[in-house]
């Protein structure tokens, strides 16, 4: 196989998984509209429906990363359009703060994304999802569960050493 073929095969094996939190009134409805309009897009997002982007707890985002998400996408109503008046602003503020933390802790910016998608913007769902998938494919897997396992291995070395010593003592 040519190198490019190998890369392609590898990239086919690994598909990024994106956890998305969509607000019921705008972005979730837009994602439904994309469906009704048969607007095809990458199959990599898994949507969790919340009533408002204001419900999205930064813990959910971190937890998604830690449990294996390659990206997290949050979709809410455009500023001024929140079904609950201002929930999206409250999320925006959290997001701006969380982004700094996530950045400091070494997760690439493109893996965490906030988009305002109104109920009528079915096509924007396609654009955002495809763009995010492309960017994450370029970054490769985040794979935190695998990393945590690898990190834990440094302790196994000692355990086997101790076991070895104890055998000698015995």
């Amino acid at each position: 196989m040519l190198k490019i073929e190998i890369e392609e095969a590898a990239s086919k094996q690994w598909q990024p998984k994106i956890v998305a939190f969509f607000c019921n009134w705008c972005t979730y409805t837009a994602a439904d509209l994309a469906g009704v309009s048969r607007i095809k897009h990458a199959p990599n997002i898994r949507v969790i429906r919340v009533m408002c982007s204001g419900r999205v707890d930064p813990q959910f985002i971190l937890d998604s990363f830690a449990k294996g998400a390659d990206g997290v996408l949050i979709g809410g109503c455009h500023p001024g359009d929140c079904h609950y008046q201002e929930g999206n602003y409250k999320f925006l503020r959290r997001f701006q703060m969380l982004r700094r933390v996530v950045d400091s802790l070494g997760i690439e910016k493109d893996r965490l994304r906030l988009e305002w998608i109104s109920a009528s913007e079915g096509d924007k769902v396609r654009i955002v999802v495809n763009d995010m998938v492309a960017k994450i494919k370029a970054l490769g897997p985040l794979g935190l569960p695998v990393k945590y396992k690898e990190w834990a291995n440094e302790m196994n070395v000692l355990e086997s050493e101790i076991a070895g010593k104890e055998e000698v003592y015995a």
Binding site: A31, D32, A34, G35, R38, K40, H41, P43, V47, R126
Partner: peptide, 12 residues
């Protein structure tokens, strides 16, 4: 949601 956000928007 298996139709609007899945079967209708994906090809594979």
């Amino acid at each position: 949601n298996t139709r609007e956000q899945n079967a209708w928007v994906h090809l594979d």
